[in-house]
Amino acid sequence: MLGALTLAFTGFGALLPLAHADDDAAGFPSKPVHIVVPVATGGSADKLTRLIAQGLTERWGQSVVVENLAGASGTIGAARVAKAPADGYTLLQQGEGLTLNGILFDRLPYDGQKAFTPVIQAVVNPQILVVNPKTGIADFRSYLARAKAQPQSISLGLPGNGGIAHVAHEMIAQDTGAQVNYIPYSGGGPATVDVLAGHVDATLITLAAVTDHVRAGKLRALAVTTAYRSSALPNVPTMAEAGLPGFSVESWQGYFAPAGTPAAVVAKINRDIQAVISTPETRAKLEDMGFKVTGGTPADLARTLAGERLRYAKAIQTAGIALR
């Protein structure tokens, strides 16, 4: 799948100048645009997409509707977009989950090699390990110590079975021997609610989903997965600093259109999302949430997909994670 995408978009990048004059995008959009978010409301992907949708609505003069279609590790929402007309009016929000699902599932309700056209990578962000303060876990080292000394004693809410948080924690487990009790959820929002309520001890989740709760003291942040600290929570150490040298996992969020969407329409959506996330007001909001704005071309996103597959495939195979 990824090799095909990379080859396709190497050529696509060269055609972008021609796409500006293409009539396919001249009147786009002339009706509401729908963005499918394949996880539950309240998580980081939902917050990001609603902010972008607001900016696009203002820019286009057409409603941009966010649809949350959670389930089956994001494949239900992805299938909805894969089957939509290739006209740019139905888009998919996805991140590294698109790569992970292609590795994890034996069968998908869409052709992973041909179903989607990359539009833009909007942001990158750390995953952050947080606990309910009542657990008594003070820092990342004590979290690892308890998970090693008392296997399965820590319950960890997963924002999606087989998602980046699951894979990242398995990479932690492979490096340290720490074992926790995974509790899968349909998204970051529901997982966070249960950690806040004390029903679950911890979650590893996109930083932007829990920034406000950490600042308010409702959740205790132990460490971020990236090699760098987040400016949104600068006092939270990296896992490499906190006891796991060399560890680094960076998550991302982007947007896709159904395969066959006219190149000029893809180029217009790319330019306009780039414009929205680049405004000082929106950039400041995203950075305050914990995102790092990236942007870039469809070809850049295709290269990201190709590059991450090998690393995650190895971790998944070692952990024996499989979805059906």
Rank of each mutant, 00 (worst) to 15 (best):
S63L: 10
G88N: 10
P184Q: 01
L233P: 06
K314R: 14
S73E: 10
P151F: 08
S142L: 07
I103T: 11
N101S: 10
Q62D: 06
S230Y: 05
G290I: 03
A232V: 05
I164C: 00
A240K: 07
L100K: 02
V36F: 02
Y143N: 02
L92I: 05
P159D: 04
V37E: 11
P262T: 08
V33P: 01
A221P: 07
Y255I: 10
L108M: 01
L144R: 10
A319P: 01
S248V: 01
S44Q: 06
A208C: 07
A306T: 09
A4N: 15
L16R: 15
A319E: 06
P184F: 00
G295A: 05
R141K: 15
Q121H: 05
P38M: 13
F140G: 01
L158T: 09
P118R: 08
S155E: 14
V195K: 05
T279K: 05
G43D: 12
P32K: 02
F256G: 02
T135S: 12
S278R: 13
G254W: 04
A263K: 09
G11R: 12
S155K: 11
D272V: 00
A257Y: 11
A147K: 09
E96F: 01
A208V: 00
N181Y: 12
V195I: 05
A84P: 02
